[in-house]
Nucleic acid binder design. Structure first.
Lengths: 222, 222
DNA sequence: TGTAAGATAACATAAACGTGGTATAATTAC
DNA sequence: GTAATTATACCACGTTTATGTTATCTTACA
């Protein structure tokens, strides 16, 4: 059996294959030229719309895809990533954007983008970001990182309405959230089922809800 | 009324006040010397344990706190951040760590840390990370950013068990998750309550659960 | 054209939940 | 040292949810 080695650049690094999805002709061409003109990188596809990209990329299987947000036609960059990422989980996607404060950051990340950089990023940095992404990093500016961290922290912090609960009530609510029956909660906490009822009743009053599901939704800040 | 201007460095930048919480004497002293020896930065406190830090930092009110993970005594760096961040939400915390692959990243972020860098970070980078943090960024390596993004994506993607549900069943489950009564769901979807029952029953069978709360927990990937 | 899957609907029964009232220790706060 | 809070407990009643069985109609598809 013959083992073929991967293409190597002059520096003996693996060549990173890149595809570009960007409707602006000038930007697309400039990136294509940059990538093909740089040792260790090869642009193996460039598309001006998401539909063609979704159709062609499965036969090209690039290591990295650079994706614009807004694309002509029915599909935007986020949906394009979602479709491809579902089929090819190991493919790495880098979102290209004009603004750092775009709320679509989160949609892009949820869809499967791992890197997130500005279009105005200097050529050398774009190349190193591509390599970084290929090697398992998530290149992004610290401004964008802060927004991701803030989102993370927001999800983590509990609803302030829960502070009105006593510690025992929080304990009961936690059991409720896990789906235990009253009798199971009673046995888990070594109290009578009637006491569980009473606690639940008090919890509902404090949270202004009338069902377990509503209480649990408040517990999880929804 | 006299207005006092903030201290300015030679470059006319505001001076960033920094506190350090780190039990290793050599590292702590080295950082203190670096910060005090650099124009635009001032180390206004250095502590070798969390308890003293929690006690003293409120009277110092530094712009930025550099925090070690492991500290002697009962309190670790994460709890120290949580306590202080609760009282001073505008204070910025930078986690100092030896390893990038620490699972405590997420605990630190939840507690309120915004930056996350390695102890071996070169002096000049440490200083720019401090400034970056002070100015609203979240300095972190792209390796750490990837882990945060991955965590984010994991939370976002729905439980694959839900794919066994028909679209109508997903609709019902969504209504269940919002806490609607069967009769409300029936009226919202213009079907009889008996049909709601049937759908719920089928959903439970497919998800292998026996209660609304368990179904909703699966719906939200918990 | 027949069959499988999905959405619709009804009925019966039992289990679980939600609401109201009442009460008693124990602890905490003032 | 008294008042307020918290955790505990019981009962009664009505509502909601969960399970089991059966049946009709439509759509997809082989």
């Amino acid at each position: 059996m013959t083992v073929y080695s991967k293409k190597k650049s002059q520096d003996n690094m693996d060549i990173i294959s890149v595809a570009i999805v960007e409707d602006n002709h000038d930007i697309r061409t400039a990136m294509e030229l940059l990538i093909n003109g740089s040792d260790g990188y090869a642009c193996i596809g460039a598309f001006n719309n998401a539909e063609t990209a979704v159709e062609q990329i499965p036969s090209l299987l690039p290591n990295v895809v650079l994706m614009d947000f807004n694309l002509p036609g029915g599909m935007n960059g986020i949906e394009c990533i979602a479709r491809l990422k579902g089929e090819y989980p190991d493919m790495h996607f880098m979102m290209l954007t004009v603004y750092e404060d775009d709320d679509k950051i989160f949609q892009a990340l949820e869809a499967g983008a791992s890197g997130y950089i500005l279009k105005k990023t200097p050529p050398s940095e774009l190349l190193s970001a591509i390599r970084d992404l290929h090697e398992g990093g998530s290149p992004m500016s610290s401004q964008i990182a802060r927004r991701v961290v803030a989102y993370f922290q927001k999800q983590a912090k509990p609803n302030p309405a829960l502070e009105a609960l006593t510690s025992r009530e929080k304990e009961i609510l936690d059991q409720l959230s896990k789906g235990f029956l009253y009798k199971e909660i009673a046995s888990n906490l070594f109290i009578s089922i009637e006491t569980v009822r009473r606690h639940v009743h008090n919890i509902y009053e404090k949270l202004h809800v009338r069902s377990r599901t509503d209480a649990v939704n408040k517990y999880y800040n929804r």
